[in-house]
Structure formats: structure tokens, C-alpha cells
């Protein structure tokens, strides 16, 4: 029997498929709900800033062109197709995050950690720190039209930072010695000491006021969505265990 066949057979075994179903159910419901909340917050608070910035990106508004820089936002327009795609993709992204989050929760529970909605909230905040705050600390969330380095280089740095930070957060939460916590601090700081890819010149046409507001709101929306994702995931995971007893 090849290792692949053994792996597939193991995957199809009742114990594995029961566990997988439990992870899948909790993760998809929690992720989709958090993603929907994120999309609503995005459309309310981020989209107006993004659309305003796109006017500068397209050259319809010009920064420093004279005295005529309207500070007021353009009227908020909801574009049905564009905004429904945002809702769908937001739900998808958080469903993906939810799957990883609940998979890690199941491993932690196996090692004795308590997983419920209260602990889930902390897990959600840890997820926010891992995939948004840490990479965004050096690679600030971009509004369209800001200057940025090559996208592949930024993606590589993003993934490396998320992996290092995730490992660090895990070590802080479940480690029990100063050596482990010291290693976690190094993992947290290293990506930022190494530095994120930066553009060669700052030539973004978008006013800094819009860029800063957008970045700040990305963090706010992300934190709210992740807190919900963790809360729901922990609660659903705990109740699915009770249900299966």
C-alpha cells in the first residue's frame, strides 16, 4: 500500500471524517458570518475612502494642483455588482481564515486548551494580530493609488511575516519558559528589522490624509471581524462537542 493510499484511507476513516466535518461546520459558519460583518463595515467605512482615492489614482482629482482640493467625500455610491462581489469575497476570505483558526483550535484542545466563545474571542484577536496588524506594521494597508514595491516581493514578505508572527503568538500562548517566550519576541520583531519591500520613490498621487484614514479603518474593521470570527468559531466548536456527546 502506498503512503498516499494510506493517507486517503485514514482520511476516509470514521474518526477523521467526523472530526473534519466538525471543523468544517464550525469554521464555515463562523467565517461566513464574520466575513459578512466585515463586508458591511467595509462598504460603510472603507469603500467611500477607497472610491475617493480612486479619483486621485485615475487623475480626476489632483493633489497639490492648486487650492481646489475638495476635502469632502464624493457622494457614496453603491455599485450592486462590485459590492456584491466584495460581500462574496469577504465571506470567502474569512471562511478560509476560519478553517485555519478552527483547525488550530482543534489541535490546541487535543493538548488540553479550553475552547469556547470567551477563549475564541482571544483566538480571534490573536488572528487579527497575526494576519493584519503584524504585516500591516511594516506594509501598511494600501488605498489604491499609493506607491508600493513589486507585488510578488510584498506577497512573499507578507506570508513570511504571517508565519513568523503566528508561530510567535502560539509560543506566547502555549509556551511555558522564558526561552520559548524569548524566541517568540525574536520571531515577532525579525520581519520588521529585516524590513518590508518599499517602493523606490514615493510617487503615489493619493493625499496622505486619505491613505492614513484608510489604513486606520482597515485595522478597525479587521479587528472587529476577527473578534467575531474567533467568538463564533469558539462557541460553535464548543457546542458541536456537546451535541456529539
Amino acid at each position: 500500500m502506498t503512503p498516499l493510499t494510506m493517507c486517503v484511507m485514514q482520511l476516509a476513516s470514521p474518526a477523521t471524517s467526523k472530526m473534519f466535518t466538525r471543523i468544517l461546520t464550525s469554521a464555515l459558519i463562523a467565517g461566513a458570518a464574520a466575513g459578512f460583518a466585515a463586508a458591511v463595515l467595509q462598504l460603510l467605512f472603507l469603500q467611500p475612502v477607497l472610491l475617493h482615492a480612486e479619483l486621485y489614482e485615475a487623475g480626476e482629482l489632483v493633489h497639490f494642483a492648486g487650492a481646489s482640493n475638495p476635502a469632502a467625500h464624493p457622494p457614496i455610491g453603491f455599485d450592486p455588482l462590485r459590492d456584491s462581489l466584495s460581500v462574496v469575497f469577504s465571506m470567502l476570505v474569512y471562511a478560509g481564515y476560519g478553517l485555519i483558526l478552527v483547525a488550530l483550535m482543534s489541535l490546541a484542545e487535543e493538548k488540553g486548551a479550553i475552547i469556547d466563545s470567551r477563549h475564541g474571542l482571544l483566538w480571534g484577536l490573536a488572528g487579527f494580530v497575526t494576519v493584519q496588524l503584524a504585516p500591516g506594521f511594516s506594509l501598511a494597508p494600501e488605498v489604491p493609488g499609493v506607491a508600493a514595491a513589486d507585488v510578488s516581493a510584498r506577497q512573499i514578505w507578507w506570508f513570511a511575516t504571517v508565519i513568523a508572527t503566528g508561530l510567535a503568538v502560539w509560543l506566547i500562548a502555549f509556551g511555558s519558559s522564558w526561552i520559548v517566550w524569548g524566541a517568540a519576541v525574536i520571531l515577532l520583531v525579525a520581519p520588521h528589522v529585516i524590513g518590508a519591500p518599499e517602493p523606490e520613490v514615493f510617487t503615489g498621487p493619493v493625499p496622505t490624509e486619505l491613505g492614513a484614514l484608510y489604513a486606520a479603518r482597515v485595522f478597525g474593521v479587521g479587528m472587529a471581524a476577527w473578534a467575531l470570527c474567533g467568538l463564533f468559531a469558539g462557541g460553535l466548536w464548543a457546542s458541536s462537542e456537546e451535541a456529539s456527546q
Binding site: L11, A15, I23, L24, A27, G96, A103
Partner: peptide
């Protein structure tokens, strides 16, 4: 092992 395999499978799907 089953629990870890299920978690791994879910994690890969999420990624």
C-alpha cells in the same frame, strides 16, 4: 492521528 489529519486537511483547504 485522525484528529491531526483532519486539522491538516482543513488548514490546507483554508490556505
Amino acid at each position: 492521528a485522525s484528529a491531526r489529519l483532519a486539522a491538516l486537511f482543513a488548514g490546507v483547504l483554508g490556505l
